[in-house]
Write a protein that binds this DNA or RNA. Sequence first.
DNA 1: ACGGTTTTTTGTAATATTACGTAAATTTAC
DNA 2: GTAAATTTACGTAATATTACAAAAAACCGT
Lengths: 278, 278
Amino acid sequence: MLAQIESSLDQLSRSERKVAAFVLGDASRVLSMSIARLAQEADVSEPTVNRFCRTFSATGFPDFKLKLAQSLASGPMLTTAMVADTDAIPEIFAKLTDKAIRSVQDLKSSIDVLTLERAVDLFCQARQVAFFGMGASGSVARDAQHKFFRFNVPVVAYEDGLMQRMHAAAMKTGDLAVVISHTGRTRAMVEAATFAREAGASVLAITRSDTPLSRAATLTVSVDVDENTELYIPMMSRLMQLLVLDVLVTGVAQKRGTDFQPHLARIKQALDGTRLSD
Amino acid sequence: MLAQIESSLDQLSRSERKVAAFVLGDASRVLSMSIARLAQEADVSEPTVNRFCRTFSATGFPDFKLKLAQSLASGPMLTTAMVADTDAIPEIFAKLTDKAIRSVQDLKSSIDVLTLERAVDLFCQARQVAFFGMGASGSVARDAQHKFFRFNVPVVAYEDGLMQRMHAAAMKTGDLAVVISHTGRTRAMVEAATFAREAGASVLAITRSDTPLSRAATLTVSVDVDENTELYIPMMSRLMQLLVLDVLVTGVAQKRGTDFQPHLARIKQALDGTRLSD
DNA sequence: ACGGTTTTTTGTAATATTACGTAAATTTAC
DNA sequence: GTAAATTTACGTAATATTACAAAAAACCGT
């Protein structure tokens, strides 16, 4: 909400901007103010405040307060602020957890569910699945392999560029290549995607929208996390990629129903011996 | 808020309980109702509603709505409910994202910051670092290796039980073994931890509290996620493990200050050639 | 155990507050 | 200088709150 106000600041009229400034300045105080009070303190008239509220898809001032309250509640993590040099561990911890929550919320509101459904379909139809990822996304690929291994479908994961190319080129129609990349610009990944497609396989990309990789893929699940990967290690984007894959694996498990239950039971049995009791 | 209402249900008078029942029944609808409307639908008088609101430390009905809105915003994830067999993709997605947020919040409130600080110290003092993990935690170990690689310290990761034992046995005082396991009962992991300690190395466990592994370690960062790993694939626990490692790596980066900046610059430069432009 | 008294609870009505729509005035842009 | 847009002033309608009175429930003595 506050972000929404901030971003549309320049589309507001002078007086409305005064209101916006006040709201952004002390949002929580607005909740306990009447429209008259706010108008007075922001030095505008009441209808101006009302118009301002309507601008942000509220039916009026009270409704605006309600919406504001909601966005404020989930927003101790309004601090998109990155970790500062002076932060001690407690601050780092707080900021990163907040950022994680915020990222999940963003993902939740930004992802297209239809795409997810189509992605699940791709998995269900696949004769065999290959996961490609490099760097940080390499471990995501590996993790994905682990999870999809539980289904009765041949699945591999490659972190190595050369192996990826070779495997991609050898793929056939009915195969699925899942290419994971945060930036969507890693040359090797885009090439692998292209090879796989040329070979007739479907390519599912898990990456940011509107990137070379997303264009090279059959279907893209967009994971847009505002994270400065140039400077920092991709942390949130990788968490979100994993989350997306969790959703997909759960979706596939659902769709497949119980036909692979015996397979699961065997895996579980095989693991039993490796566990200790207290 | 809703929980608060529910718990104090028996201290309310008959009419007020009617109001409470209605609010609990359809809280979100209350937000768009006037006091008159709510009074009518709950079959009580308006002042009763007002009194009801004051009971929950609100100055009046509008204020109550505000407070309710806030608690509702952070609380769609009251549903700890697991994914059901009948759920379609949208529901699965919603539930998993909610669960992720909830898990992060739980982690945030449950983790001991002092332990994190000591863990960061362990990393800073380490001459070399080895990450051990199997199964789902294997990819976490790999990911951790990636991140810590950016510091100028020798770091390895093993997913293979045999290699883990060998490496653990060969460790020396001043070395650090980081053992990652969701269950804390994986025999190979506990053994690796024991070997490493016997060899004189420090052992940091990232696992649930009060498990064989946590007892075998020098220091344990407890990651307690209520997740039925017996039946389902560990999803949230792995996300939380990664988050903890993110915090640790950021903490180490902080503590080390800028002394490894040139090292970072070299890595970045090496990556540059692998990226595509639009 | 019953009827009267006190306390609590509830509803009615009046009042005060708050927000919204309309129309006029000011400002701004051309 | 005029037309468009934007802001403001005012009045009205809706909404919430207070005060008070009636009803119900609990308490108590006989």
